[in-house]
Amino acid sequence: MIEPKAPHLSNIEIWQKWKEEGDIEAKKRLIEQYLTLVDYVSNRMAIGLPKNVSKDDLASNGVMGLIDAIEKFDYRRGLQFETYASWRIRGAIIDGLRQGDWVPRSVREKAKKIEEAYQHLEQQYLRSVTDAEISHYLEVSEKEFVHMLQEIAVTTVCSLEDPIREEESETRLSLLVDEKAKNPDYKVHEFYLKESLVRGIERLTAKERTVVSLFYYDELSLSEIAEVMCLSPSRISQLHSKAILRLRGALDKQKDQLMEH
């Protein structure tokens, strides 16, 4: 079996047969070859989701994302297929979760309130705000705020994979990846989004930055991060939630400006 590495080099003939000759057998071979990506992404995204969310459903949606990736991938650009496919798989799984309405409206509303609180206070103070300041703004105790974070933890697992525009697949996280040159208008938007993301990351606490780095770049699970940082999984979940809500707040203003264009 051909190893799924550097497909634009080692699998060039398979991609040519599928893309240039429309060979269905070549397409099937690519799907079979990269099914392990679906398992990896779906298992990773299952972490922290409610027990009523079926892993089989995640995987089924992920397969649809993989097929979509294989149909749209341009092997001639010299990009890494695994990275591109992972975005598509995650996107398909997130779409499936949204359609299933797996998070109660009350939990989504709490997440939005906290996100708006971070956005308002950090724009006002131009620094990272404390739990006490957020709690005061929300008119709840710090204990209640921690409980709120625990409730909304599942809504933040996929947050950086949310699309910048509803009709497109470009995500906030994908802005960190250097791609081929795009049109000038897009590059201007991309530049300001990156700047907003950088400022948002700078305002995270040291522990929050570590969690984001280990989760999104080193691709450790939350339980693995807990072991690395010698903290409880629930504490890591709280740090992750706060980090993502801070980042979403920092990006929302720029996102609104993008939507206007």
Rank of each mutant, 00 (worst) to 15 (best):
D39A: 13
H8M: 11
E21P: 08
A26P: 07
A250K: 05
S196V: 05
V146E: 15
V212C: 00
G78D: 02
K255Y: 02
A111C: 01
Q254R: 10
V146S: 14
E20V: 06
C230F: 14
P50V: 02
P104V: 09
E144V: 05
D39Q: 10
K207Y: 09
V212M: 10
G78H: 04
E20L: 14
S223E: 15
P163K: 04
H120A: 13
F215E: 04
F81T: 05
L97R: 04
N61V: 08
I14T: 15
S221K: 12
E219K: 13
D68M: 02
I70W: 07
I14Q: 00
R77C: 02
K113I: 11
S106F: 07
G249K: 03
A69M: 06
E133Q: 11
R127Q: 13
G22S: 00
T36V: 14
H136C: 02
L204K: 06
S241E: 05
G96E: 04
L204H: 00
K55M: 02
W87E: 15
R203G: 03
D74A: 00
T130Y: 06
T155V: 04
D256P: 03
V228W: 07
K182D: 05
I67N: 00
I236R: 09
S223A: 14
K55T: 13
D95V: 11
L220G: 00
E224G: 07
V140R: 01
L204E: 05
V188H: 09
G78K: 02
A26W: 03
E71R: 07
D252L: 02
E208M: 04
I67M: 12
G65N: 06
S174P: 01
I93C: 03
C230P: 07
V140Y: 01
S234G: 04
E144P: 09
H240D: 02
L222T: 13
L204M: 04
